[in-house]
C-alpha cells in the first residue's frame, strides 16, 4: 500500500512563500485561493530575546478526514493512497466541507465566474502524479530550503518514514482525532 504524507522541517523554513506561489502557478489557482499558506506569528518574546518560526500549511490529508463524510455529492473524497481531493465535476460548492475542515484548508474562489465555483484544496498535486507517478508536489519541488519532504509512509525506506521514525515530529490539532498526515519538525529556537 501507499500512504502519502509530508514532513515539514520548520527548522529550515524561512517563510519565503515560494511554495505558495509555485502551487498557485502550476495548479492554476484563482488569485484568492491559497492551498499552502506559510504562517507565522511573527517574532515572539521580549526584545532582543525573541524567536520566530514559520508553519507552512497545506491540507493535512487526514487519515480520518472531517471533510469527506460530510460531502452531500461525493465530490470530496479520499484516494487509497490517502490523498484527499475534490472532484470539481461533482462539487456543487455547498461549502459544508469547507466548514468541516478544522485547518481551514479549503475554500471556493470569489473571483471565478459566479456559476462555476467549486471547492478547491491541496491534492498533493494529484494531477501531476497522475501524469508522472514519480512527480513531487510543486511546493516540495520548488522549496529552496528543502523544508518540505514528501513520500510514502508505508515504504520503510522512504525519507519520510525514516524521519518520522527517528525525529520528534508534531501534528496539528491531533486531539481532534482527524489523524493528520503532515508531520512537523518544530523549530524550538534556543541557539547558542
Amino acid at each position: 500500500m501507499t500512504r502519502y504524507v509530508m514532513v515539514i522541517d520548520q527548522r529550515r523554513c524561512i517563510g519565503c512563500h515560494s511554495c505558495t506561489v509555485a502551487c498557485r502557478t502550476w495548479n492554476k489557482l484563482p488569485l484568492d485561493i491559497v492551498y499552502n499558506p506559510v504562517l507565522s506569528e511573527g517574532a515572539q518574546g521580549e526584545w532582543p530575546n525573541v524567536h520566530k518560526y514559520w508553519t507552512p500549511m497545506l491540507c493535512q490529508h487526514c487519515a480520518n478526514p472531517e471533510c469527506v463524510p460530510c460531502c452531500p455529492t461525493g465530490a470530496s473524497q479520499q484516494d487509497a493512497d490517502g490523498t484527499v481531493w475534490v472532484d470539481p465535476k461533482k462539487c456543487m460548492s455547498c461549502k459544508v466541507c469547507v466548514n468541516a475542515c478544522p485547518y481551514g484548508m479549503r475554500d471556493a474562489s470569489h473571483i471565478e465566474s459566479r456559476l462555476h465555483r467549486f471547492v478547491r484544496k491541496c491534492t498533493f498535486c494529484r494531477d501531476a502524479r497522475e501524469m508522472d507517478p514519480s512527480a513531487q508536489p510543486y511546493c516540495v519541488k520548488t522549496c529552496h530550503q528543502k523544508a518540505r519532504i514528501f513520500g510514502d509512509l508505508d515504504d520503510p525506506n522512504s525519507e519520510v518514514s525514516k524521519i518520522i521514525g527517528s525525529v520528534r515530529t508534531e501534528r496539528l490539532f491531533e486531539e481532534l482525532g482527524t489523524e493528520p498526515q503532515i508531520y512537523y519538525i518544530p523549530d524550538l529556537g534556543g541557539k547558542a
Binding site: 452531500p72 455529492t73 462539487c91 456543487m92 460548492s93 471556493a108 456559476l115 465555483r117
Partner: peptide, 12 residues
C-alpha cells in the same frame, strides 16, 4: 443561490 455550481445539485 449560495451554491457555486447549482447545476450539480442533483447529485445530492
Amino acid at each position: 443561490v449560495d451554491l457555486g455550481q447549482p447545476g450539480v445539485f442533483w447529485r445530492v
